[in-house]
Nucleic acid binder design. Sequence first.
DNA 1: CAGTGGTCTAGACCACTAG
DNA 2: TAGTGGTCTAGACCACTGT
Lengths: 237, 237
Amino acid sequence: MMKKYEMIYRDLVRKITHQLYPANTYLPSENELTELYGASRETVRKALANLLENGFIHKIKGKGSIVLTFDRYAFPISGLTSYHELDELFDMKTETRVLKLSTTTVPQTKFNLDTTEVIPATYIQRLRIVDGEPLVIDNDYVVQAVVPTITETVAANSLYDYFENQQHLEIGYASKEVTVAPATEEQQAILHITPGSSVVIVKSETHLQDNTLLQFTESVHRSDKFKFVEHARRKLI
Amino acid sequence: MMKKYEMIYRDLVRKITHQLYPANTYLPSENELTELYGASRETVRKALANLLENGFIHKIKGKGSIVLTFDRYAFPISGLTSYHELDELFDMKTETRVLKLSTTTVPQTKFNLDTTEVIPATYIQRLRIVDGEPLVIDNDYVVQAVVPTITETVAANSLYDYFENQQHLEIGYASKEVTVAPATEEQQAILHITPGSSVVIVKSETHLQDNTLLQFTESVHRSDKFKFVEHARRKLI
DNA sequence: CAGTGGTCTAGACCACTAG
DNA sequence: TAGTGGTCTAGACCACTGT
């Protein structure tokens, strides 16, 4: 049984993206939505809070919830979203090429670990090609204590799909860190960029719902093709 | 009168940052917090939802809310936070130098506006110097229809403080876009970086609570000093 | 089993916006 | 004044975790 507020959220997202509720118009009021979906007001408000957080709407006290214009072509650094899911949502022609697949340990220096920690892991290097252009190198270290083996077929498809649907692991959260650095020679060669170019590096550390460490990832993006957008609300620290 | 869930949130943040609730330990249960603060469970949960969103805790069903390690030294792209507020929270030695202050219109091409739109604005260029090093150039265009005049004194201090406390405007949200580009000669000179260096460009469009446009900002960061971290939770698009 | 967080409800009062 | 979203409550049932 699907959660009610999730149902309402999805239905509203669909109606917004299909412009049944166009940008710069107001959604039905919370009381109306309460009747429409046969839910209590707090449940409707939970769905709206989700829309708010994801930048679909802005709420104005005394007036209503206004639909915002939605930028479709941004890379979601925020959020944990797989390329496979992106593929289905937008129609980017994405191709994934597995460059390396081996068994090692997580490199401590790269991910700021204690030098004492030795974590056996499966190392996967993949190249993401979008519309014929090599855009991103993903270096994944998947903790073997959680996922013992990963085949090349799985790597070529979606790790997340494998984790969630085959292994029945539940992804919880990740801490991400974004920096910019000069491209190494290997990166220049793989990404087809000139010496002296910069790359954007996104390092992340993914945990399961029960807080166990699952995966370390270093994503290396071509900086000239890198872009991400964010919806920020005013909040106190 | 302060909102109850905001009180609870702030108190918990304080206790976490002061390590009264250390990392990797559990917070008191929701029922205990309900008694501790004399609030209903849903109110406590609203405070916890805030902690969750800001990466302070992770919740595990059947077990409790676990405190996460908090990275203090990240630049908050996410969120709308002024340098002044950062200054007070961390103790960075921040200095702001006003380079330009004039009256113009918002440049359409830079912010992807319709060429027909002509928006009179106050232009402010400021240099942010942290620990003696020039790190960021902020180019702000403040819509004159909302804020008619801005003095050099105000610009040298905090625009947000001026907007919120003097002008009594309420900041609502901003859409932000992050890209990387080669530094222009002017940027090289101001930021003391070598030719061929990259800069990180954060463009944003800030709105008030009532949805009126307040401000366009282009922030140019030295890429070698740029870093931001994010806490991402698994969610469906 | 008792305790935890996750979902949902029905109802209340408030502050704000509009005509 | 009527309608909107914002806050808060008290209580219910569920699924999950540990013992």
